[in-house]
Design a protein around this nucleic acid. Structure first.
Lengths: 104, 104
DNA sequence: TCGTGACATCGCGATATTACGATTTAGCGC
DNA sequence: GCGCTAAATCGTAATATCGCGATGTCACGA
């Protein structure tokens, strides 16, 4: 369980430096607050469609937001059939919290 | 001692989402690692000139970096005579760490 | 295999950020 | 006052990000 590199820190901070992406990460704390879906949200994550609906952006924008969060390792994507499910990567988020005060 | 608003979180993350600004905040943890100056660095902060020299950027760029960090409340500026001294705002940094996991 | 729905990627214009040199503002010593 | 230095601000070109519609890819069901 290593620490986050400087590059990883920067890309995580960059990803969080946008109001909608920051909000999405907060929403994902309670996956069951989203509409029901075939797979349980608290296991496999929330379907992109539901994230898009709550964020009120186009499909492509929602997809790109999640790709940015994923590149920063802040979320994990699980694809099941046609659906992409996103859930928080609590490990990275915890490391980020630890990095503040230690590295930062 | 309130918490950070969403806007404050976003602007703090945005400010940290740049490798040089992130590095500067780390450097400021040990003000005495900079060249000596009239005022003690661990009391009043580090002179902009020394930050500029270590970051290896132009004077105007260094000034703007610090202004960005200051707008995000991550550093405090103390002007003494002609010199602007910058030190970490540990209070905001601590709140930011707490916000990760709570809000984020 | 053909159509449909879910998602990713492309291409684009609009906007924001970056980093710089030049200029301005202001403090200091003479 | 004058010159010198420190720092903020201005103006700029280059670059990156934002958000969208259009297109491409893939899974599913009829």
């Amino acid at each position: 369980m290593g620490e986050l590199s400087d590059d990883q820190l920067v890309s995580a901070f960059k990803a969080l430096g946008h109001p909608t992406r920051l909000a999405i990460l907060g929403w994902l704390k309670d996956g069951n607050s989203f509409p029901p879906q075939d797979q349980p949200a608290d296991e496999v994550g929330v379907c992109l469609k539901h994230i898009q609906a709550r964020a009120n952006v186009s499909q492509s924008t929602a997809s790109q937001f999640m790709a940015t969060l994923q590149r920063a390792d802040l979320v994990i994507c699980t694809r099941i059939g046609q659906f992409s499910h996103y859930r928080r990567n609590e490990q990275t988020i915890a490391k980020l919290g630890e990095a503040i005060g230690a590295d930062v």
